[in-house]
Amino acid sequence: MPQIAQLAETYSSQIFWLLIFFGFTFFVIGRGMVPRVMATVDARDAQIASDLAAAQAARDEADRQEEAWRTRENENRAAAQAVLAQAKADGAAKTEARLAEVQQSIDVRLAEAEARIGAARASALTEIEDVAAEAAQDIVARLAGVKVTKPAAAKAVKEALVHG
């Protein structure tokens, strides 16, 4: 086994050259190059992370804009509906008022007409009584030859009309 057989004569050169070359590897590659490679990786990771964050922020901003637009839209719609309802209510109130007015005038004219009809009926009734009393006076005078006074005839006619 050369590793043991040659140990005494080669160990110093093995150790010497290993320290030289591994030292070079450590100081030039390990300390010099690896941190720069890792810095590149870190920079890329940071870049990706910041890009993602920016994209997320833009997305949030868009969501916020949409939300604001939606709120505004809803407000506008509510306002329009309020105006509509107001106009409807106004129209209804106006119509109702006009209707009430017309109804009132109709009522008045109805009452007037009824009063006129009542008056006409009353006057017609007295006229009938007058005519009936005169007729009764006449009939009594002709049949019985008795002169009946006008108030008495009128009284009799009224009784007859009442009992009828």
Binding site: E9, S12, S13, Q14, W17, I20, F21, F22
Partner: peptide, 13 residues
């Protein structure tokens, strides 16, 4: 101490 440049050192290089 012997520091001969051996085939081992060559392969380290």
């Amino acid at each position: 101490y012997n520091i001969a440049f051996t085939n081992s050192a060559l392969w380290m290089l």
